[in-house]
Design a protein around this nucleic acid. Structure first.
Lengths: 391, 391
DNA sequence: AACCTTGAGTTCACTTCTTGAACATGCGAG
DNA sequence: CTCGCATGTTCAAGAAGTGAACTCAAGGTT
């Protein structure tokens, strides 16, 4: 009776069966709504085996087969049972809160954003998230008990294992908060946490520009700079849980002071908050990253220059990443990425210039396709991939 | 007839069988010379299965059972067949050639090094390796047909998949050579190639300082600078096959010209060849890395300073690596590492200083324990782990 | 000395799984 | 309208793991 999740003794036939069930579920997850034949091809299993496993998992309520409305044969799409549960993604940005609800078939069924004060406490933020989530759930006729898990995105370094935020987070009200536990207590459902860059990477690799790539890097350039590293199809967190902090590699020993306590970090040359500082003499106070991008796109010379330089510096850092990890694809996201080629061109140029030739030759620097939804969608994907109903 | 090594399609029964064969072999390796009952207990497999697998592998010549000399029943110790096959590791350094022979029990049974001219052609080098290998084989009473595979270590970037050397190799006579194929033709046995840093990483993780670590980095500082990155227990090569080129991350846009064509690469600040350049005014021509280390250890002030500075610069680069990958362990090897704390202290200090605090806090910078044998042993491990008879 | 206990390794019947082949089904192209 | 063809299902055969029964030998017990 399809008891996935439970693990049989390793090496036994039933463990093989379970492994193959996981393979099938993973294939469905990866492909969205494949046919059984697709699954057979992508997993390498025989059609017969796939047929058996799909029947079992359908009986167990894990998968559903949609009889191709047309009524006939020719492709019965298999997908994860939507009624089996919902996933909630919550993204805390530096000035906004965004919540999305999706089902196991990876369809986003509801999504909403609202502004949130940077200085808000963790309690305030979670309270707002709670209300937003409940509101969205009621619009889709569901309740909290339908929620399999909640993915939480926070800016700044976080240990995904313990769920504790580092001190250098962008949200001062959150420093040192054991975010995962706190959210679990308030929301009453399993919570998974990760930082914004890792979630962006997860989203882009699941739905976006890096789809189908087992190895890739996602660079988020917004107010700060961070990276999500995808290795073997999964976001790599590293032994310490905070991998991907590309924003704080040193470009210049004697450079500007960074909020992390070092000097000359990449972030101080490419992060939106530092660009605002740079542009203060010409543009005054209150310049946001979004505004800088807008001005740059409309031809404002200082802003164009600032964005271009940010791209060059970011490219130098990415070149280092390319030397170390030799990826085929680097996806660029975050607010500053909305400047398009104003940012990407100098960035790609810097990579070609600074990376070792064998690394520069194979890497493509492309913009993310999910925009400011990347983080919420990643939070959603976090639930769908990390605590899947059965996987 | 026990065709281990060849991998069946994942998910199939035969793949399960292979996995269980590996389990048994691993158990034997871990325990030394266990009985079948011991194996059954430690693997969780049934005694019947163990019996079958042991019979197969014995017939295949991989395992041997010693009939407890006493003649009777009661514990037939199982061990890896020493004669089942040998692995050969070959390491081409910038000035030497080193060959080691090991058996499936991971014991090194013969090892020898000889000087080799830097300018030697690939054909010369392979010829010398051939003679050295044959000589060593005869000393252990074996022939080439006993060799299961040959691991080849070369300095410089190499695509492990295609086996072609990049142009920036340290050995000019090898540039563009399709090393794996060339060696296979000459030596007539399966050949696996990788670069020196990756092999050092593999060796340290298999036998040395990083043993038991699934994630770690190995930095080789010798004439050049390179890294081997271990992720999930395996050396990570990246999509392009040349990951780990830490020697060519840019520390200074306007720094010294590097042989890779860029300027201010880490290698130009920490690589032995550049230190020799730096010390030319005080010490004249012909300074080797080994000599610099020796002088530094014996108190020569310029050399101490040069080594210390190299450590600081290397540490800055390693800090970037720590920010990106957040490892718990960084092993330092290569000729310059023989300077011990003269190099490691400033290096660790630079990491503490330049890496983000969460990354600096958890990382240990330790010296490798395999010295200049690291690469050969890694080449040996390459054979034992990548195409192991069955392992 | 004869006997019993105990654990090791093997054999056998049984069950679980995967798989290739054969088969039914229905959409598209010609 | 028919044929080709890919899809999904069923079936029998083969591969593999497992518990139980069995053989075997050492070592202690009576």
């Amino acid at each position: 009776m399809s008891t996935p999740g439970s693990s049989a003794t390793p090496g036994s036939q039933s463990s093989l069966r379970e492994a193959n069930q996981r393979r099938v579920i993973q294939a469905v997850r990866d492909a969205g709504a494949p046919t059984q034949a697709d699954i057979a091809r992508s997993t390498g299993l025989s059609r017969a085996t796939v047929s058996n496993i799909v029947r079992e998992l359908s009986a167990g309520g894990v998968l559903v087969t949609t009889p191709t409305s047309a009524g006939g044969r020719r492709a019965r799409a298999v997908s994860l049972a939507p009624a089996a549960g919902l996933a909630v993604g919550v993204d805390f940005g530096h000035s906004h809160l965004r919540v999305a609800i999706g089902n196991l078939a990876r369809e986003v069924v509801a999504e909403q954003a609202m502004p949130l004060d940077v200085g808000a406490s963790a309690a305030d933020g979670l309270g707002a998230a709670e209300r937003l989530m409940d509101g969205l759930l009621s619009t889709v006729g569901a309740t909290r008990t339908d929620v399999l898990g909640i993915g939480l995105g926070v800016p700044g370094p976080i240990d995904a294992a313990s769920g504790t935020l580092g001190s250098s987070t962008i949200l001062p009200g959150w420093a040192g908060i054991e975010a995962a536990g706190e959210a679990r207590r308030r929301l009453g459902r399993p919570v998974h946490v990760d930082n914004d860059a890792n979630l962006g990477a997860l989203a882009e690799v699941t739905w976006g520009a890096a789809r189908g790539h087992a190895d890739a890097a996602y660079i988020k350039i917004g107010s700060g700079v961070g990276a999500g590293i995808v290795i073997g199809g999964r976001v790599y967190h590293g032994p310490g849980g905070t991998a991907g902090e590309i924003g704080h590699i040193t470009l210049n020993e004697n450079g500007p002071m960074c909020r992390c306590g070092n000097r000359g970090c990449l972030e101080t040359y490419a992060g939106g908050r530092y660009l605002a500082e740079l542009l203060r003499p010409t543009h005054g106070d209150g310049l946001t990253t979004a505004r800088i991008v807008k001005l740059a796109l409309s031809g404002d010379a200082p802003c164009r220059r600032a964005v271009g330089d940010a791209g060059r510096y970011a490219g130098t850092g990415v070149a280092g990443l390319c030397n170390l990890l030799n990826p085929r694809l680097v996806v660029v996201g975050g607010d500053l990425a909305r400047a398009g080629n104003l940012l990407l061109e100098p960035m790609a140029e810097a990579v070609r210039r600074s990376a070792i030739s064998s690394a520069a030759a194979i890497v493509s620097i492309v913009p993310g396709v999910l925009g400011d939804r990347a983080e919420v969608l990643g939070a959603l994907a976090l639930v769908l991939t990390s605590s899947p109903s059965p996987a």
